[in-house]
């Protein structure tokens, strides 16, 4: 079986799904079911006392999905750590998708604060999946403090632009010793397939599904693309030929004996 293994735990699907931006909880539930995903991200917010809405968790079967709380909204390490601890106190397993995004425009992750928070959270026993820019050296620093995956972005979150960071993601994949999950910016199933063909271990998608005219159908499309990309990667892609430059033979000496 070609399972995705994170921190020793096995997952059938290589597609992680976000639960934000859906028109309704019912539609969200239908979409994650159609995605075939095993890991579902959620965010933590203050309860709105005056207007308590339909609880998201009423729609997610906790036996079927691993709930992966994120730290969205955190602007520095301390806030992210606080959110992670609260998630655990709210009954989640100690898994956290670490996001520290002080930049309010592109929501780009802060590498320095992310590293600080990761170090603290790993020591507290969290299984940390940090959202990062596609920076190979940052990925190495994070691996050293003990994160369970790295989650480089394909493009700024919510932009649907695809794998704009392809070359750097390729370096991260080549050098990583933990699973690489391409997160953010994947706007179409073809983008997800591209990341998987490149050798990513998984991808994470939210906006592209939530804003589709038919979210469950789009989720199913992503599921197929992720599988197709993974299979193509395992099968060994027919590679583009680099024409070798003509030059004198280098191994003639092997025959002149």
């Amino acid at each position: 079986m070609d399972d995705l293994i994170i921190a020793g735990r096995s997952f059938r699907s290589r597609l992680m799904v976000g639960t934000g931006k859906f028109a309704s909880n019912a539609q969200m539930a239908e979409t994650i079911a159609a995605s075939g995903g095993d890991i579902v991200t959620v965010a933590l917010r203050r309860v709105n006392i005056d207007d308590q809405q339909d609880d998201l968790l009423n729609h997610i079967d906790r036996d079927k999905y691993l709930l992966l709380p994120n730290t969205s909204g955190a602007r520095d390490a301390d806030e992210a750590i606080r959110l992670a601890r609260l998630s655990r106190a709210a009954g989640c397993e100690p898994w956290v998708k670490l996001e520290v995004t002080p930049d309010p425009y592109y929501l780009l992750p802060d590498p320095i604060e992310t590293l600080k928070a990761a170090e603290v959270l790993v020591k507290e026993g969290f299984i940390v999946l940090p959202y990062i820019n596609a920076d190979p050296v940052l990925a190495k620093h994070l691996q050293e403090v003990g994160v369970a995956t790295v989650m480089p972005l394909g493009a700024p979150i919510g932009t649907n632009k695809g794998l704009k960071t392809r070359d750097n993601v390729a370096i991260i994949i080549e050098q990583a010793i933990v699973p690489v999950v391409v997160d953010a910016g994947l706007g179409a199933p073809s983008h997800a397939a591209e990341a998987m063909e490149l050798g990513a271990d998984a991808v994470m998608v939210n906006t592209a599904m939530a804003v589709a005219a038919n979210p469950p159908m789009m989720a199913a499309a992503f599921a197929k693309a992720v599988e197709a990309g993974r299979e193509a990667y395992l099968a060994g892609l027919g590679k583009q030929q680099n024409q070798a430059e003509a030059s004198s033979p280098l191994t003639g000496f092997l025959r002149n004996k």
Partner: peptide, 11 residues
């Protein structure tokens, strides 16, 4: 394919 390998390695 040793010559091809050598050319690539050289490059």
């Amino acid at each position: 394919y040793i010559e091809t390998m050598a050319q690539k390695a050289h490059q």
